[in-house]
């Protein structure tokens, strides 16, 4: 049923997201802005972990690549925000391939360690380089503008990241429902079988890392101009874990699920603010319960559907002379 009204529900949700700022105070507007950041980040990671099945514990590194690229180019070199994006794009692809290459032959547990290491390396590098402002980071990042209009208010940034979020959902949806997306899923389901079916797993895994990296880095670029100051703390291991959490919680490989996951990961701790110190404990318990009772996530992807073609059974009858021996389906 949800499927049937998919387009309508999506349009409605988009509409709600557009008018939402008019009903929120500054505090909740900020919370929802971060939800949208997480939607972008989680969708990017969803390509790698959800679709391709490659565990990545260092995804915040790509977030950092975008944020620092934009920050450095805008402060030290006075570039405009928009012209930093192609550079962030290229650097994300390069860093995606850098992390991808050594992990190609690794299976999940080793992969987790290598990606974790990569995330830490990026964080440590930005903490120690002068150009990235060392531990204190970069501040005084200018406001971006579109055709003379300076994007500066909270609402402006909400809309900016909303557009990126919509784009990221669209991108992941279209990639996911294409020949490329199916190949990623085949790799996740059975790497050897995928290779036997003519899918070059090395090329497709690199493409997956690179695509995820680009989306993560764009989130970083917007993050830099929204915050006007960035520091290594925002790109810690914890950040990677929280993004991964959004994906797993929502449902690996499910676009709608990941949106819900991102919202929960940000909003739940806010709602629990009243509980003070207990906040993260309750959050943690909720997560554990979630994974015990619904390990596939809140809204897992659906690969199996009822056939929309009602003529199937009849076609079977007149069709071939050699019929498959009947057996009761063992479900």
């Amino acid at each position: 049923m949800i499927r049937k009204y998919k387009k309508q529900s999506l349009l409605l949700l988009t509409l709600i997201m557009f008018i939402l700022p008019f009903f929120l105070n500054i505090y909740w507007l900020d919370v929802f802005t971060f939800v949208l950041f997480y939607v972008v980040l989680a969708q990017g990671l969803n390509i790698v972990v959800g679709y391709t099945g490659l565990l990545d514990l260092g995804y915040a590194a790509f977030f950092a690549v975008g944020a620092y690229t934009t920050a450095i180019l805008m402060t030290t070199f006075q570039w405009s925000f928009w012209s930093t994006l192609p550079v962030a794009f290229l650097l994300a692809i390069i860093s995606g391939i850098i992390i991808g290459t050594p992990t190609l032959r690794l299976r999940s547990d080793y992969l987790a360690i290598v990606t974790l290491g990569f995330g830490e390396i990026v964080r440590i590098v930005v903490t120690n380089l002068n150009i990235t402002g060392s531990a204190s980071g970069i501040y005084g990042i200018p406001r971006p503008s579109i055709g003379g209009y300076v994007i500066s208010t909270q609402k402006d940034f909400y809309y900016l990241i909303l557009i990126f979020a919509i784009l990221s959902v669209l991108i992941v949806y279209r990639l996911g429902h294409s020949r490329i997306g199916r190949a990623w899923i085949y790799i996740r389901e059975d790497e050897d079988a995928a290779e036997a079916m003519g899918i070059n797993r090395i090329r497709l895994k690199l493409l997956s890392y690179a695509s995820g990296a680009v989306i993560g880095s764009f989130a970083g670029s917007v993050f830099a101009v929204k915050m006007t100051a960035i520091a290594p703390l925002s790109f810690s291991f914890l950040q990677s874990v929280m993004i991964l959490l959004a994906v797993v919680l929502g449902g690996l490989g499910s676009i709608s699920g990941v949106v819900v996951g991102a919202a929960l990961v940000i909003i739940l701790p806010e709602l629990l603010r009243g509980a003070d110190d207990w906040r993260y404990l309750i959050f943690g318990v909720a997560l554990v319960a979630m994974m015990v009772f619904r390990p596939q996530g809140i809204w897992p992807p659906q690969y199996e559907t009822e056939d929309e073609d009602p003529n199937d059974e009849t076609e079977d009858l007149d069709g071939s002379n050699t019929k498959a021996p009947e057996e009761s389906p063992s479900l």
């Binding site: 199916r182 059975d190 003519g198």
Partner: peptide, 16 residues
Amino acid sequence: FPNLSVLDNVKSGMHC
């Protein structure tokens, strides 16, 4: 590919 539909399984052949 255990979780995928029969159709999606077979589509994999056409990748190459």
